[in-house]
Structures are given as C-alpha cells and as structure tokens.
C-alpha cells in the first residue's frame, strides 16, 4: 500500500472518528483530495479497512452517488444539464460548443486529463438555462465566446 494513500485516508477518517456512519462525507473529502477526481480501488480498500466495513459497501456507495466516481476523471469536471428545462431551452448548441472547444464528446476526458465533459441532471439553475456546472460553479446564458473564455480560464488555472 502506498503511504500517501494511507496518510490521506487516515487524516480524513480521523476527522470523522473512523465512524462508518460518516462514509459519505469521508468519500467526498477523500475524492476531493485525490488526483483525477475519483476513488481508486486501492483507496477504497484502505477506507474499508480503516472503517472496518466491507469493500462492497464502499463500492455500493461510490457507484450509487453521481458525485462520486470509481473511474479516473479529468481535473476539471464540466457537467452539462440534460434535464427538462434545459432540453426545452435547446441545450444542443451548448453541448456542441463544449465538445468542439474541448475536442471531445460528452462522456469523455481530454487526452491531457484536464477536462471531463459529462451530462448531469437538473442542478437548479433553470432560470439561466441552458446551464453548465464547471467544478462547483454554475454558468448560464452562455455564448460560444463565453464558453471559449471559460475553458481558457480553467486551462490557465489548472496549468
């Protein structure tokens, strides 16, 4: 086992008294501090051991919740809303702009592992629909130019 994984798991689990009731915040926090925005199999095994629960329970939770991932993702996650309001408001242009600017399709990660582009369900930004969520921030009323600027800004910040 890698010592840095052990260390991260310990620092987070200790905050939550190594109590499995807190599995959700523990996983969210560990994922936030893990490279590639996901919980690796090795990390899931470490967490299970630290909390004295089964690996299958850890995996059940990771794979159930859409904010958690068992697969590596980009450093910046771009979520395009694909729910009712954003469909009514024709989000197809927005999808195309992001796909073209990033050079990937929805569901893919850029080859440099900087961006992952995915669909998501309504995140409550219907008043500025069609909307997109980039990391934790929400943007709406976008134009092609704004999409370009947003991605450029994130590229700059990530490097």
């Amino acid at each position: 086992m890698k010592p840095e994984l052990e260390q991260l798991a310990d620092s987070v689990c200790a905050k939550y008294d190594y109590d499995a009731v807190n599995l959700l915040p523990i996983l969210q926090e560990i994922q936030r501090h893990s490279p590639r925005n996901y919980i690796s199999e090795e990390m899931a095994r470490i967490i299970a051991k630290k909390l004295d629960i089964t690996e299958s329970r850890v995996y059940d939770v990771i794979t159930y919740f859409s904010a958690l991932s068992s697969e590596p993702r980009g450093e910046v996650i771009i979520q395009i809303c694909n729910s009712t309001t954003c469909n009514v408001n024709n989000n197809r242009d927005l999808i195309r702009w992001f796909e073209e600017e990033l050079g990937i399709k929805v569901g893919e990660t850029t080859p440099d592992n900087k961006f992952t582009l995915i669909f998501t369900h309504c995140f409550g930004a219907c008043d500025v629909s069609p909307a997109v969520r980039i990391e934790d921030d929400v943007y709406g009323m976008l134009t092609r130019e704004k999409v370009k600027d947003l991605i450029a800004a994130k590229r700059g910040a990530v490097v």
């Binding site: 729910s83 009712t84 309001t85 309504c122 409550g124 930004a125 219907c126």
Partner: peptide, 11 residues
C-alpha cells in the same frame, strides 16, 4: 435536497 427538475426555490 431539492432535486425535482425545474425546481430552484429552496436555492
């Protein structure tokens, strides 16, 4: 946990 699509009043 306002999750019904189209809802943002709790926000």
């Amino acid at each position: 946990d306002e999750g019904e699509p189209g809802t943002f009043k709790d926000r």
